[in-house]
Amino acid sequence: MTMLKIENLHAEVGGREVLKGINLTVKAGEVHAVMGPNGSGKSTLSYVLAGRPGYEVTKGKVTFLGQDLLALAPEGRAAAGMFLAFQYPVEIPGVSTTMFLKTALNAVRKARGEKEFSPVDFLKLQKEKMAQLGMDAEMLKRGVNVGFSGGEKKRNEALQMAMLAPKLAILDETDSGLDIDALKVVAEGVNALRSKDRAFLVITHYQRLLKHIKPDIVHVLADGKIRKTGGPELALELEDKGYAEYTGDAALRAGDKSI
């Protein structure tokens, strides 16, 4: 079943075209990796899909579970089952993580026409997911991401993902700022969520995350377009050769031919 279909997507940020015609189809149960050099448009793609204000779609179409994704507000996309794990999770002082999670979870459930969680059920679920991620309960009392280390922030993203149980999870540079142990924990959290009904879009610069979250399909994004698509071996190839092939004029010409 096709979960996400991106067709000829063009988008601008601050008047500059960053995405220049993306085509991508993700089916339920698949894990896609989008790799690319800095400035290739990776993060922009994740923000455009999540509906961040200021990221303007100028052309193209995105269908998510049969719905026109671009017509939905950010919270509507979340309710429809899309989750973005942020590269730089945002601090919200004074709002405890528990409070935040409860508000988010109940808002999403309400939008889906489901019953709100009772406080007891919520705490049970939270406790269970925390344990899976090896998180300290003390963290829940602190303000969302306030004073969290890089690893704690990413774990917190993984926790939110586990709680919200999305259909499609986009992981934006989840490996950045993580040491290898934290990376493993977060990757395990993600792997635990893999299922035939759920898809992942893993956005990363480096191959190292893909050692822990094995992709089915790998795309190379450069200068706003998908330049190459292949299997997991493509990621390994990139690790050896880097992105040189995909940057500069020669690369662009080569890329154009391959599409």
């Binding site: 961040r52 507000a73 950010p74 919270e75 999770p89 709002v95 409070m99 988010a104 808002a107 999403v108």
Partner: peptide, 24 residues
């Protein structure tokens, strides 16, 4: 945006952030 991405509507997000601001 962070709150909205998690499914919290704009008004709810503002209320949440303001309550956090007032927490002390």
């Amino acid at each position: 945006f962070y709150c909205r991405q998690r499914g919290i509507g704009e008004e709810g997000a503002v209320a949440l952030i303001v309550n956090g601001f007032c927490r002390e």
